[in-house]
Design a protein around this nucleic acid. Sequence first.
DNA 1: ACGCCCTTGTGAACCGATGCACAAAGTCAC
DNA 2: GTGACTTTGTGCATCGGTTCACAAGGGCGT
Lengths: 226, 226
Amino acid sequence: MSSNATQRRGIPDATVTRLPEYLRALTALAESGTVRVSSEELASLVGVSSAKLRKDLSHLGSYGVRGVGYDVDHLSYQISLALGLTHDWAVAIIGMGNLGRALAAYNGFTSRGIQVVALLDRDPAVLGRVVAGLAIEPMADLPRIARERGVAIALVATPARSAQEVADAVVAAGIGSILNFAPTSIEVPDGVRVRKVDLATEVQILAFHQLQHDRALLSGLRTVIP
Amino acid sequence: MSSNATQRRGIPDATVTRLPEYLRALTALAESGTVRVSSEELASLVGVSSAKLRKDLSHLGSYGVRGVGYDVDHLSYQISLALGLTHDWAVAIIGMGNLGRALAAYNGFTSRGIQVVALLDRDPAVLGRVVAGLAIEPMADLPRIARERGVAIALVATPARSAQEVADAVVAAGIGSILNFAPTSIEVPDGVRVRKVDLATEVQILAFHQLQHDRALLSGLRTVIP
DNA sequence: ACGCCCTTGTGAACCGATGCACAAAGTCAC
DNA sequence: GTGACTTTGTGCATCGGTTCACAAGGGCGT
Ligand SMILES: NC(=O)c1ccc[n+]([C@@H]2O[C@H](COP(=O)([O-])OP(=O)(O)OC[C@H]3O[C@@H](n4cnc5c(N)ncnc54)[C@H](O)[C@@H]3O)[C@@H](O)[C@H]2O)c1
Ligand SMILES: NC(=O)c1ccc[n+]([C@@H]2O[C@H](COP(=O)([O-])OP(=O)(O)OC[C@H]3O[C@@H](n4cnc5c(N)ncnc54)[C@H](O)[C@@H]3O)[C@@H](O)[C@H]2O)c1
């Protein structure tokens, strides 16, 4: 079908996680009126090596021009196509606490390919409250909501102890992907995708590297003053 | 110094990113009164293979007992030690919008090794407001605050267009690690550590995998109905 | 019209991470 | 005290990802 063999099976995972970064940088370039960009420029903009960038892009096809670079709009389009962002994905946010409300108010992804279509919570006290233009709805309505609005992705922002039961409800409602913000791992059947965002983990990783850095300084001193 | 050679230089990065997960699972086990755990049990609890778990732990030393398993408390302690969580890390949150307030209210890491000691914002309208027991302070005070309270890690939760200038201020204040929530990459001098948490990226990655899944189903049908 | 110059796309070497499989080591029952 | 049993710790093979370096390819100046 495609003339280029690379289009065929499988973009490597590591590449997929970087494509959204490239896309964001390209969008910023387009907004600033830039028409063409070299792998060197784009790479330094997102903080990767140009070789890595070129290899990543080569997995989508051959969209650069040798001696010139990449057309910003066309490359944006090709990445959007590969990521499946040429049509919108409907997402639901579950758990309207501090984090859930912040996520609902976040308009960083309404721009491209992602649309929040439902907010849900268990607590009767918050039902009906409007956040960012959407009324909070009860968990009992999840199956209907998922069906009617074609929800494909759920963001789980409930406390950890509720995360598994919420995930079960999400799966039962036929939603195929979960982004889990609760600091716990959840079990899902095969064919359901889960990713996790864990703030405490990130900070602890930083703490480790900071410690290594501090220790390196210290031992550097020690070699000077034996 | 240590009798075990593995304690020496360098725990692999991939291992470091998983240690916090192990620690959390161990903490949960300890709370439920469990005293011992096998690599098999702990691994399934966090969703990794037992071989990977054992190899990860082997980088810290040899703290298991063959034929028995690991002592929950002792292993927790050893991981905390490796991550540098036996003393508290002071963190500052910069940008008290929707996300910043949610982060301040989050008590998931106050529990272990991490303590939020300052909230800052540029907007005079929010200065002095108290969030989660801390008053919001002006950016001008960052150097003093960082020095007096020993801030080692900054969480940047400002809009993307401010992120670089905030990062510069953070670095100038002598803070060595940044967790960046703004959807932009920031430049820092050598010797400063940055990690990024990007919601839109995560959702786009999920969208990609969901698309692959949907396509696989479709082509599965196509082979049945040619 | 032609050749120089620039940047892409990629083969190949390298590096780190993962998975496998088992010997080593310690417990526990008797 | 001994042997059977269980689970760890790790050597080794494998895999995927990154880096290097350059030939291929197209634009552009002359
Ligand atoms: N606040 C943060 O910055 C932050 C950061 C990272 C992770 N987290 C995690 O995200 C989750 C939410 O954090 P938060 O600060 O918003 O907590 P929160 O307590 O403010 O809000 C939780 C919300 O979930 C709802 N909920 C509880 N059980 C539910 C269920 N079974 N079904 C539907 N809704 C349910 C509650 O009614 C509440 O509105 C927690 O797991 C937390 O650890 C929070
Ligand atoms: N809301 C979310 O769920 C969410 C999720 C992921 C990422 N983000 C990102 O996090 C950032 C914050 O999001 P938000 O929804 O809280 O935005 P927001 O507009 O509600 O808050 C931003 C805050 O930063 C402050 N600020 C701006 N410039 C500053 C500066 N130079 N120094 C100090 N403070 C400054 C503003 O006064 C404001 O209080 C954004 O970059 C957003 O893209 C938000």
